[in-house]
């Protein structure tokens, strides 16, 4: 499913625009990364695309249809989101949490069908949380919890997966595993849009990138087009070395630290 955001503007309060005339296109079956400094509007853009926030102007389209015309439930059949952090009320078990992903597909009082059980199991296998099935969502580590929420999103069988800095609190291994699963999904045809801070990881995961600053879309294109030393300095205010890794073939970004004594 192709995502298309056209001329979105959104303000939480009257004084400042969180999104200022932002447009973005994510081709079907590809992964795009949304990068930019804190407060640049990445999360707001994801929340508008997910339908949680209504833009003051502009519209979001999935395969050309405006999402405003879909019901919350219909939208949830096509689009899933993993938030940066989620405070789960009550002591649900991991398998119960993942099963919530079937809600949009099931009639209100219908029991779990064999197909539901299969989908849930498959989602848990993909996110590697089968071993946690009978643990409480509060009794597992932050990294495991993010994988559970990924499994929940996958259990929705979405055509579009949105992720808002999902690995911020994860260690290197968990982050790498998480991103590998996401990349795999995009390779298999899911449309992925991910807000992410680590520019090097972003370049590895994404086919395309969009750089935001101050509520505006600065530049969008391939990682090589977007990740230039000039772009990084003008939006992040950081001088960095940008190169192409000889082995991986993807762009890397090394920020230059100040404060060391000259050698």
């Amino acid at each position: 499913m192709r995502i298309e955001a056209r001329n979105l503007s959104f303000a939480y309060s009257e004084s400042s625009l969180a999104l200022n005339d932002v447009s973005l296109e994510v081709p079907s079956g590809s992964a795009s990364a949304l990068i930019g400094p804190n407060g640049s509007g990445k999360s707001t853009l994801l929340r508008v695309i997910s339908g949680v926030l209504r833009p003051q102007s502009g519209a979001v389209f999935l395969d050309g249809d405006p999402i405003a015309r879909r019901s919350t439930r219909d939208l949830a059949r096509h689009l899933a989101m993993v938030e940066q952090e989620r405070a789960m009320g009550f002591d649900f078990l991991v398998r119960e949490v993942v099963a919530l992903g079937r809600i949009p597909h099931r009639a209100r009082f219908a029991g779990q069908t064999q197909a539901d059980v299969q989908t849930i199991r498959h989602a848990m296998e993909l996110a590697d949380v089968c071993a946690l099935a009978n643990r409480s969502i509060h009794a597992i580590s932050g990294g495991e919890r993010q994988r559970v929420y990924l499994a929940l999103a996958l259990a929705q069988e979405p055509a579009v997966l949105l992720l808002d800095e999902p690995t911020t609190h994860l260690d290197l291994r968990h982050q790498t595993e998480f991103m590998s699963i996401v990349r795999q999904q995009a390779t298999e045809g899911m449309t992925v849009l991910i807000a992410i801070h680590d520019l090097t990881v972003a370049a590895q995961v994404a086919d395309r990138m969009a750089l935001m600053g101050d509520g505006q879309m600065i530049v969008a294109g391939t990682p090589g087009d977007v990740l230039t030393a000039e772009n990084i300095e003008s939006t992040f205010g950081v001088r960095a070395i940008v190169g192409i890794h000889p082995e991986l073939g993807s762009t890397y970004v090394l920020p230059k630290l100040a404060g060391r004594r000259e050698a």
Binding site: T72, R77, L79, G89, E96, I103, P104, A153
Partner: peptide, 18 residues
């Protein structure tokens, strides 16, 4: 069922269609 979804938080519930 909607109350179960609400345990995911307000936005979490909305993401699963409630």
């Amino acid at each position: 069922r909607d109350l179960n979804a609400l345990a995911l938080g307000e936005e979490g519930a909305q993401h699963v269609g409630v």
